[in-house]
Design a protein around this nucleic acid. Structure first.
Lengths: 331, 331
DNA sequence: GCCGTCTTTTTGAACGTTCAAATGACGGTC
DNA sequence: GACCGTCATTTGAACGTTCAAAAAGACGGC
């Protein structure tokens, strides 16, 4: 009843331990006849390599860690979840596993990161939701631990001289596309509904609208559907000629949609950001972040274009980040 | 620059390997003075136990595997994602990790399950989205591999003589509560908007409404917002006295909500199922599945009430499943 | 038949931990 | 003072794999 080991397979096939190992890991260096004999023995016994023994010897876990925030309940979590899905699929293609870990605070997360990385539980981690002055990235860099962040290193550096590997979505390009789409349909008075200044992500998204040849008010509100509805209702009353609203998130877009519907102004086009199931259900257009591309980019940075082993790219300008161009989904 | 091992710590603290191991794993059997000395040495060197070595020796990975479906894009994925979040948090409290794996078909999933469980990569798995005649559960049972399913073993058995460990949400109780809520508010003509018969989950949810003292039509449609909208629009035209709609999912509820709004019948109450961010944003009531309780239940079944080691409960009647009573969130 | 080269296979050791059993220290009892 | 029991600590071995180096085989040329 005990699980078979390389030795058991070797005995049956009449070869040595190491040859069995070679058949499993580097079949091309084994003579064909031998290989077939060993493969038959493996099949007969139902042999599976023991992951822990392999990890111990190779000092690789073939596992990537990713943090899950305490579930916020809001719409925003959906993008992260889609990213986790995509990461799992892409990682599987490279014979990698994805391990989740939970932490409520950056401090708790740092402690977890230490356990996981220095204990050899994971080979690298993906840090999500970075913010200005994030203690996690600094801690990881000090120890030269392999990681990539989903979200750029706000403020500290940028595209020119990256402080570390990162992947991000080009928020400005997203809102620029949304604004251009409305302009192309003859809408000229286009408002932007965004968050208070100071969040890197929000400022980026606003920039794509501001730099477009569109005129219209800028409305500001916290991430909250009913607050957004009220702000838009008031804004429309003050500026009734607005004919399109570009929003920094789908939550805000839903609020705007409600205000527009209640005011009977269904002629006004509302565009969201994140393309969550909620706006899909409501038939609103939205900017799609393409989490699949973000996931592929993260793995490329950590493992090289086609690598199956973690060996992070050096953080030198130009190749140390991936900036994904989002796509406008028109409905 | 090499990572310190138990031996390094032992040398500094002037004790043996095993004593260091005891300080880490069973501190109470070590004399206080010794323990403090060892702890100081651990802190000084920044020692972390090497996960792979521990796993190899103990033959435990302290890891639970969970499958992620290919991302469907729809609203339904949200419940599973919340469950994964909750499972990760609860598992962390018991010193357990959660490993994700992807698979597109049941066959591919079975192959993955074999690798993970028999290779010692995970101690147990959580199988989600079980269906009638599911090949995965049978395969796992044949090999006596530890697992629990989120979703009951439809058809093959049930509460009386469980075939395996399972956790599920009591769908009938959810729609019963929704119907009762409407009845309590004086609404008597209550329709049910559900899926075609045959899916265990859908039939359960319908049952909670059918067994309630409510009269009203039963409308059937695939899981699709615009199809639901059309069905409800037609249904309301035929039965204008309907004053409440209980739905089998939030997607259907959004469709119903759209139909109700377009028909100007905002007096009609619509209740969804899953309490996703989308219906929250729209201000609809919905039945909340409480994924946190499902996650706790799954771990209780796999590890015992307070255990920190996987040792699945025997599948004997009464204690081999957890049926979570959902909660109606009124908006 | 022997040598050199290249390919294929085998051998010994090591990865870092914990289990199981042995040893040592210390009081208490007869 | 010898013996016993309890508690604290140490010792040797084992978990299953792959690395690095050594050995054996195959093959052609002379």
């Amino acid at each position: 009843m005990k699980a078979p080991t390389v030795d058991d397979v070797a005995r049956i096939a009449g070869v040595s331990r190491q040859t069995v190992s070679n058949v499993v890991n580097t079949p091309d260096i084994v003579r064909e006849a031998t290989r077939l004999r060993v493969e038959a023995a493996i099949a007969e016994l139902g042999y599976r390599p023991h992951a822990a023994a392999r990890r111990l010897r190779t000092r690789r876990s073939s596992t990537i860690g990713i943090h899950l925030d305490p579930y916020a309940g809001g719409i925003s979590g959906v993008v992260l979840d889609r990213f986790v899905h995509a990461l799992t699929e892409r990682a599987g293609e490279r014979d990698m596993r994805v391990l989740l870990y939970a932490a409520r605070t950056p401090e708790e997360e740092i402690s977890r990161l230490g356990d996981l990385l220095e204990g050899g539980e994971v080979d690298a981690v993906v840090v999500t939701g970075t913010f200005h002055g994030d203690p996690r990235t600094g801690w990881l860099m000090d120890r030269a631990l392999p990681f990539v962040s989903f979200g750029r290193p706000w403020g500290e550096d940028d595209v020119e001289a990256p402080a570390h590997l990162w992947v991000d979505v080009d928020g400005a390009a997203g809102t620029r596309a949304a604004t251009a789409h409305l302009l192309g349909r003859g809408v000229s008075r286009i408002a932007f509904l965004g968050w208070p200044s100071g969040s890197g992500t929000g400022d980026e998204r606003e920039r794509g609208w501001r730099e477009s040849p569109a005129s219209g008010p800028r409305w500001v509100v916290e991430e909250n559907v009913s607050a957004a509805r009220d702000v838009v209702a008031a804004g429309l009353a003050a500026a009734p000629d607005v004919a399109g609203i570009v929003c920094a998130s789908d939550s805000l877009a839903i609020g705007a949609h409600l205000a527009v519907t209640l005011a009977g102004r269904t002629d006004i086009a509302v565009i969201g950001f994140d393309n969550t199931p909620a706006v899909e259900a409501l038939g609103l257009s939205s900017v799609e972040q393409l989490p699949e591309k973000v996931a592929s980019g993260a793995l490329d940075l950590l493992m090289g274009e086609n690598g199956t082993v973690v060996s992070p790219r050096a953080a030198t300008a130009g190749t140390a980040h991936v900036l994904v161009e989002p796509r406008l989904v028109v409905r």
